[in-house]
Design a protein around this nucleic acid. Structure first.
Length: 895
RNA sequence: GCUGAAGUGGUGGAAUUGGUAGACACGUUGGACUUAAAAUCCAAUGGAUAGUAAUAUCCGUGCGGGUUCAAGUCCCGCCUUCAGUACCA
């Protein structure tokens, strides 16, 4: 019998699912291991070969850890609130719930086909009211907490000390201003096209992260999360985490902590202006000030003759989108206000300008400009002919590094690092400065004007806001007649006026109609997996203390700042309030690389109807367009008939080529619109899931991105066939015998056990697969039939290729499902080989090899090699200056 | 610009704390078995030179230096690619 992967895989997937083989017990004396995948958004297009990479890796770890005696939690769920379903709903009128459900069924089916060992009893969906009940509950916890700066942690709002002198409404106002989730009118990133606001993290270069639509700044009333209070802790706690350096770096970068000083500049008797600087040591070179056009002090200081010009400039700035503002980087603009400030050290009058290169949202919205030591200031000063004074020794016109202080009265000769502290202390004494820390991180704008998200459990009344009572959760998402925002820019939920107004004890309230952002549900889902059916709390204390933290979290690097920062923040709040027992949620993080597509391009002539082959395309004016990779063979030849028959737009087009029509290739992200998607189902159909799993692991290091390429897939498929043939002959007779294994086979086996288990622990799956291939090849050529070898072999391969392993295991007469079996222990003695082939070199150049016992001492080795004829011949009578002997490694003569 | 990662055969990729490159796989070539093909098995496979041959010698890990008995690995200076980020004072 041949290795019939189709029936084997079907059989075992069914068996695992029906018998709940992978359901996990919360009560166990075994050590725990929590392996988590970043759960997917169930998009309409299903899985492609890129998705499974991380899932397969985490599955291998789970199976391996189970076999090593851990109680493993390996759950899966769906991040099912989100924009695509809503946009589809706007287009088609179909309820997002319906399309989402449909997609989830498809996803689950595809996931199961990959042979993943999820505990489906713990499946969660963020759009489930039983789930978002607790998302809302956490929101209320944030709403009902404040940040105690002294203790550097969140506390319940009832512990907040309120000054007695306040009136009742002032007290309310005071409390509201301290909440971790608070309402504020702020300049937000408004995306007209999406009809919603976006968090800073969701805006990339002035365009929306999703869709790439323009974003403008606009003041709006929004719910905001006080994540900035956690900035320091979010940076500090990164140190203890086993995460990739790149992720840690981008989080630190995003939080953007910088320390410096706020220095006060006197303008006139009534007005002063504070600037933030990280370089107080350059203050003697500050020759002008620049303030942001939005700065409120502006109206108090402009002179009459400048007012018109300033007004124009400010108006223009407001009209610009972020993108347009960024385009001005090379060509700075600005206007003189007519006012002057006094440099507190030189006591000179320096002009005050406005310019949009100073951002109102960062620092104090005003800077002291030191053109000799800051490139932006330098450009600005050159353009507007402002004074430039060097205060640090350097040959360059504009030098932003550290160095020796010059032109700074009696401070000359100091080094700038020292001067920084000296001058700040001096200014502090004179009440002209204070040490400050600034962050790039802004508070998290938490509301979205959308339908398909968690409703915010808040009621509005004339005198302020009230959080919903816990017993009234979940606040379910109401039906609406249309999923579009209302004409006055309100969220779609405002369309349901019946739902919107509530009467409680005779008092009228209006519900909050905005919803939470997509990130809300994924901020804490790892906690719900611990206890998904719990009705009394988001998870029981007992389960939390048993399972947390997540030992291994696998997912894409695209969530480096967004998801991972937000969920760390929520986790820390829950930690402060005593609901979780660890300060950090994810102990180890691994980013799987992306699997890229190998796109194909053809060239269309500008006339629009004829196409030319790639090698002659440069002769014409052409457009480059994607063509489906399914119509291209390995030699980059386009199969025209296939293309024409499947796409009507090519049916009557003309094609120009020499003997074959060639395409161009390029590696890029897999996506439907690029026609380069490879569906894992096709691979499973042709080679089987076990082959796909092995191949994705064999392709290269997990963290590395790589193009999908099926060229080598036959290699791993052959490996499985060879593995099968170790156990069965062509007539399906079992070959395994209860004979004593040969010493050499035992050595090979144990070498492999060591290598594979070390490799799995260090996520080096590609080399683990190689080690298994070597063993199977060796056992084949050794004609090994011994059960004592062939049984452990199944267990080694099992985490990678579970279906075939289960099948062989059963055929050997073992209890059903390997999951109950132990990973073989590595026995040290089988590895011990008492001899070693030493390379013998002269001045580092390899000259000879010699086999020696490892027991020999250095002196014995020396005596031995000096009596070796071949070596003496190589030395050719030359007396070595030194002989370097590293036991077990090398012998080197220095002559 | 800044941050992070990476540059090794025709290809994907291996190489412990520096220890004497190219594991494993694909591909290619040759052979066996077949009427033939597929499948399977065996062998060779970084480059150059010399030799009938076993073999020997030299060159080889992006480029240029350096440290060392010994460098893909460490140090200095560059180049290239990818990813993230950017008027953050």
């Amino acid at each position: 019998m041949e290795y019939n992967f189709r029936s084997i895989e079907q059989k075992w997937q069914k068996y695992w699912y029906e018998n709940k083989i992978y359901s996990t017990n919360n009560n166990s004396n075994l050590p725990k291991y929590y392996v988590l995948d970043m759960f997917p958004y169930p998009s309409g297009s299903g899985l492609h070969v890129g998705h499974p990479l991380g899932y397969i890796a985490s599955d291998i770890i789970s199976r391996y850890k189970r076999a090593k005696g851990f109680n493993v939690l390996h759950p899966m769920g769906f991040d099912s609130f989100g924009l695509p379903a809503e946009q589809y709903a706007i287009k088609t009128g179909q309820h997002p719930k319906v399309t989402t459900e449909k997609n989830i069924v498809r996803f689950k089916d595809q996931l199961n086909k990959l042979g993943l060992s999820y505990d489906w009893d713990r499946e969660i969906k963020t759009s489930d009211s039983e789930y978002y009940k607790w998302t809302q509950w956490i929101f209320l916890k944030l709403y009902n907490s404040y940040f105690d700066k002294k203790e550097n942690k969140a506390k319940n709002i009832s512990e907040l000390r309120i000054p007695d002198s306040l009136t009742k409404s002032e007290k309310n106002y005071f409390i509201d201003s301290k909440r971790l989730a608070y309402l504020d009118t702020i300049d937000v990133n408004w995306c007209e096209e999406l009809g919603t606001v976006l968090a800073n993290e969701e805006v990339i270069g002035g365009l929306s992260e999703r869709g790439g639509f323009p974003v403008v700044r606009r003041p709006m009333k929004q719910w905001v999360m006080r994540i900035t209070e956690y900035a320091d802790r979010l940076i500090e706690d990164l140190d203890g985490l086993d995460w990739p350096d790149s992720i840690k770096a981008s989080q630190k970068n995003w939080i953007g902590k910088s320390t410096g000083a706020e220095i006060t500049f006197q303008i006139d008797d009534n007005n002063t202006i504070d600037v933030f600087t990280t370089r107080p040591d350059t203050i003697f070179g500050a020759t002008y000030l620049v303030i942001a056009p939005e700065h409120p002090i502006l109206k108090d200081i402009i002179t009459n003759e400048q007012s018109e010009e300033i007004e124009d400039y400010c108006k223009n700035t407001l009209l610009k989108s972020d993108l347009e503002r960024q385009e001005n980087q090379k060509n700075k603009t600005g206007v003189f206000t007519g006012a002057y400030a006094i440099n507190p050290l030189t006591e000179q009058k320096i002009p005050i300008w406005i310019s949009d290169y100073v951002l109102y949202g960062y620092g104090t919205g005003a800077i002291m400009a030191v053109p000799a030591h800051d490139e932006r200031d330098f450009e600005f000063a050159k353009k507007f002919n402002l004074r430039i004074i060097k205060v640090i020794k350097s040959d360059q016109d504009c030098y932003s590094g550290e160095g020796e202080i010059i032109n700074s009265s009696n401070y000359n000769g100091l080094m700038s690092e020292d001067f920084k502290n000296i001058i700040t202390t001096y200014l502090e004494k004179n009440k002209a400065a204070k040490k400050t820390t600034n962050y790039k991180l802004r508070d998290w704008v938490f509301t979205r004007q959308r339908y398909w998200g968690e409703p915010i459990p808040i009621l509005h009344a004339d005198e302020g806001t009230v959080g919903l009572d816990e017993k009234d959760l979940p606040l379910k998402l109401p039906e609406v007649d249309s999923y579009l925002p209302t004409s006055d820019g309100l969220s779609p939920l405002a369309r349901n006026s019946e739902w919107k107004s509530v009467n409680i004890n005779g008092k009228n309230f209006i519900r909050e109609t905005n919803t939470m952002p997509q990130w809300a549900g994924s901020c804490w889902y790892y906690l719900r997996f611990l206890d998904p059916k719990n009705n009394d709390s988001f998870a029981s204390k007992k389960n939390i203390s048993y399972w947390m933290p997540v030992d291994l979290y696998i997912g894409g690097a695209e969530h480096a700042v967004l998801h991972l920062l937000y969920s760390r923040f929520w986790h820390k709040v829950l930690f402060d309030l005593g609901y979780v027992n660890t300060p950090e949620p994810f102990k180890k993080l691994v980013n799987q690389g992306m699997i890229l597509g190998n796109s194909a391009f053809i060239y269309r002539k500008i006339d629009g109807k004829s196409y030319v082959s790639a090698e002659i395309a440069s002769k014409y004016k052409t457009q480059r367009i994607h063509v489906d990779i399914n119509y291209v063979n390995e030699k980059n030849e386009l199969e025209l008939e296939l293309l024409k028959n499947n796409n009507s737009e090519f049916l009557n087009a003309s094609f120009e080529f020499k003997d074959k029509f060639y395409v161009d290739r390029e590696v890029e992200k897999m996506s439907k619109s690029k026609y380069n998607v490879v569906n894992p189902d096709d691979i499973c159909e042709k080679y089987g899931t076990d082959t796909l799993r092995l191949y994705e692991m064999f392709l290269g290091p997990l963290e590395q991105s790589k193009p999908w390429n099926t060229a080598g897939i036959s290699g791993v498929h052959n490996f499985l066939k060879k593995f099968w043939k170790l156990y069965f002959d062509s007539d399906s007779n079992l070959l395994v015998k209860d004979t004593d294994p040969s010493e050499i086979s035992m050595k090979s086996l144990h070498k492999c056990i060591k290598k594979v288990s070390d490799d799995i622990e260090s996520f080096s799956f590609n080399t683990a697969v190689s080690a298994m291939m070597i063993l199977v090849n060796e056992l084949t050529s050794q004609k090994c039939r011994s059960r004592n070898i062939l049984e452990p072999l199944i267990l080694i391969i099992y985490p990678f290729a579970p279906h075939i392993s289960e099948e062989i295991w059963e055929n050997l007469g073992n209890k059903k499902s390997i999951v109950y079996s132990k990973y073989p222990d590595f026995i040290d003695s089988y590895l011990q080989d008492n001899t070693k082939i030493y390379p013998v070199s002269i001045n580092g150049k390899l000259k000879h090899k010699i086999e020696l016992s490892l027991d020999l001492t250095k002196d014995q080795i020396e005596a031995r090699i000096l009596s070796d004829e071949t070596i003496l011949e190589k030395l050719n009578g030359i007396e070595p200056k030194r002989i370097i002997i590293v036991p077990g490694k090398i012998i080197n003569f220095v002559i």
